[in-house]
C-alpha cells in the first residue's frame, strides 16, 4: 500500500507502523470516580467497520508523524490522510 503523507508525499506503507482505530485519539479522562467504564470502551471496543475506516499509522521509518488515514477496509482505497495532531486538536485535545 501507499500512504500519501501530508508533509512528505506518497510513501510505501512499510515505512509505517499500524496502530488501529483513530478513536484511540479520543482518550477519556482516566482520573476520578467512575472512569473505568468509559476507559473500558475506549481500550477494548471497536466499530470494526466493513468500509470506511479512520485509523492511526505512525511514520516510524520517516518523520515520526502519527497520521489519521481514511481507508476502506473492503477495497483498501485511501481517501484522506491527515496529521493526527491536527485531528486531535480538532477533537478538542490540548494539554
Amino acid at each position: 500500500m501507499i500512504i500519501n503523507h501530508p508533509l512528505l508525499g506518497p510513501r510505501d506503507a512499510t515505512e509505517f507502523v499500524y496502530l488501529g482505530d483513530a478513536s484511540m485519539i479520543e482518550r477519556p479522562n482516566g482520573f476520578g470516580e467512575d472512569v473505568a467504564d468509559a476507559m473500558y470502551e475506549y481500550v477494548y471496543l471497536r466499530d470494526n467497520p466493513a468500509g470506511e475506516h479512520r485509523e492511526l499509522w505512525y511514520h516510524e521509518q520517516g518523520d515520526r508523524s502519527w497520521l489519521v488515514v481514511t481507508r476502506n477496509t473492503l477495497t483498501h482505497e485511501i481517501t484522506e490522510v491527515a496529521l493526527a495532531r491536527d485531528v486531535a486538536r480538532s477533537k478538542g485535545r490540548s494539554k
Binding site: 500500500m1 488501529g20 466493513a50 481507508r71 477496509t73
Partner: peptide
C-alpha cells in the same frame, strides 16, 4: 491493518 478483504500485500 484492519481489513475485510481476503487478500494481503
Amino acid at each position: 491493518y484492519n481489513t475485510y478483504a481476503q487478500r494481503g500485500n
